[in-house]
């Protein structure tokens, strides 16, 4: 699959514009608590988001007018593997509150190792177990972090 390089640039600039404009809009609703504008909590966010919006508009114009049409490849395989990995990671984090943390982490690691192509069962299980053990020793035992 191929996507136009120009389109990609334009969409990034458009994303910047949306971000800048949103921040500018949000900054206007910051309560000044009766302070002068120059010392108010609004002044810095407002000033910066204004500049950001202007930069984004400028970039967008330049992208539309000046960028030459070019092609940049997008590998569908890459997107697939990324989404697959993200699914495993998000499933892990969503389950984090409901399943015992150490057990879940252990299975997450096995799944992730396997997904990325690790096949030696000894290394997969051993690696996962030693990481869980390290996590337990350092974070929970050593640093008294109480996991969910």
């Amino acid at each position: 699959m191929f996507v136009l390089g120009k389109l990609r640039k334009i969409s990034l600039s458009a994303l910047f514009l949306v971000t800048g404009a949103f921040l500018l809009y949000s900054s206007l609703s910051i309560d000044m608590k009766g302070a002068d504008f120059v010392v108010s909590p609004r002044v810095v966010p407002f000033g910066l988001s204004l500049i950001m919006t202007m930069i984004a508009v400028w970039s967008l114009v330049l992208d539309i007018v000046k960028t030459r049409v070019s092609q940049s490849p997008i590998d569908i395989q890459v997107i697939k593997s990324l989404l697959g990995f993200l699914t495993i990671v998000f499933a892990y984090v969503f389950l984090i509150r409901s399943v015992n943390f150490h057990v879940l982490t252990f299975f997450f690691l096995i799944a992730a190792f396997y997904y990325l192509g690790a096949r030696s069962p000894v290394w997969v299980v051993g690696g996962a177990a030693s990481l869980v053990a390290a996590e337990f020793l350092i974070f929970q035992y050593g640093f008294k972090v109480s996991f969910p």
Partner: peptide, 25 residues
């Protein structure tokens, strides 16, 4: 030697599981 590594790995798993059982009583 994969045999010893496996034993090591297994003992780590057992260790981790026991400790977690102890901490969640």
């Amino acid at each position: 030697n994969f045999g010893t590594t496996a034993v090591k790995g297994l003992s780590l798993v057992v260790g981790a599981l026991t400790t977690f059982c102890l901490t969640t009583t």
